[in-house]
Design a binder for these strands. Structure first.
Length: 300
DNA sequence: GGCCAGGCTAGCA
DNA sequence: TGCTAGCATGGC
């Protein structure tokens, strides 16, 4: 990771080609998201550090981003943690040139590259948040999923107000582990999802599950490990590998958003079957996550 | 009003 | 190993 301390702000540099403006397009598209707020060309988010949560404003810089601190300035150590979060959120260290090389040979992906060049898979660095969001999003439409997520965060998260808006920290596993499924039912979680999420919170609270433990697993082992968690199937495991562990070969092939994007790009009147998608994706090998993300971005 | 939604589990053959 | 009912409700 490459970052620099400029006293009142920090800069984090991405590996070329990196363009924050392209990532910002994605952030703006998720306008029902509650964990961050886009104001103009700047995204504000509460970033957890060991010295507490720090409200941070992130905007584009020459070959990376500039991060300012509108409320309280973090210490040197805090800045390092914030730089690390930002670097991870935007997958800034990844060398994505191989993806562009294979995309140039691919009829589906090729048209997307000029439009979104420099865009990274925008991630979910926190494992509990990534798993919870994957489970909330299963088999319900995204509009409703965002409503449920909002209720969950407003009920059990903490926030800091700034300029008439609230900036949230995702509910901590220790808090969620204490809940009764009935409490989440009131927020319109299904009973199953309530159980899954509370169980995962307990696993994390009891140190049986952590990002640090899983971080160095091979892709296949990580997927197997994630799928051993109740409520996490094929799609969710790949979604979390993609958004939290940044493994570019993660391929949530059953994803309805992917199906709809392909239908639109191919001009079909129905969604392609999974088998057909697998054939189409033969050339995406190793970069399926980026292919999926660029396709998500291209539609809807 | 009916089909679909960023699927998963458990039960069955 | 492969198939499917049931989940649970909102969105459009």
């Amino acid at each position: 990771m490459n970052w620099h301390d400029d006293e009142s702000y920090i800069t984090v540099t991405g590996r070329e080609p990196f363009r924050f403006e392209a990532c910002l397009k994605w952030l703006k598209k998720r306008d029902k998201e509650i964990m961050y707020e886009v104001v103009g060309e700047c995204v504000f988010i509460l970033i957890p550090t060991e010295e507490g949560a720090v409200l941070s404003g992130i905007e584009g810089a020459y070959d990376g981003v500039k991060v300012t601190f509108p409320l309280t300035a973090p210490t040197e150590a805090g800045k390092a943690q914030i730089a690390s979060f930002v670097n991870e959120w935007f997958d800034m260290d990844k060398d994505i040139l191989p993806f562009y090389q294979l995309a140039a040979q691919d009829p589906v992906l090729k048209p997307l590259i000029p439009e979104f060049k420099g865009m990274r898979v925008v991630g979910i660095p926190d494992l509990f948040e990534a798993l919870t969001w994957a489970i909330i999003g299963q088999q319900i439409n995204l509009t409703f999923a965002y409503k449920v997520k909002r209720r969950f965060i407003e009920q059990y998260g903490e926030h800091i107000p700034f300029k008439g808006r609230r900036y949230w920290l995702f509910p901590r596993p220790e808090r969620v582990a204490e809940l009764d499924p009935a409490e989440l039912r009131e927020l319109q979680f299904s009973m199953r999802k309530a159980e899954y999420i509370i169980d995962i919170a307990k696993l994390i609270r009891d140190r049986k599950l952590s990002k640090e433990k899983l971080r160095n697993y091979t892709p296949a082992t990580l997927k197997k490990e994630l799928m051993s968690i109740r409520g996490v199937g094929n799609w969710s495991a790949d979604y979390v590998r993609m958004k939290c562990f940044r493994q570019p070969d993660a391929f949530p092939v059953a994803d309805v958003g992917l199906h709809n994007a392909l239908k639109a790009r191919l001009g079909r009147d129905r969604k392609p079957a999974v088998e057909e998608i697998m054939e189409m994706a033969a050339g995406w090998s190793g970069w399926e996550a980026y292919a999926v993300f660029y396709l998500w971005m291209s539609s809807g």
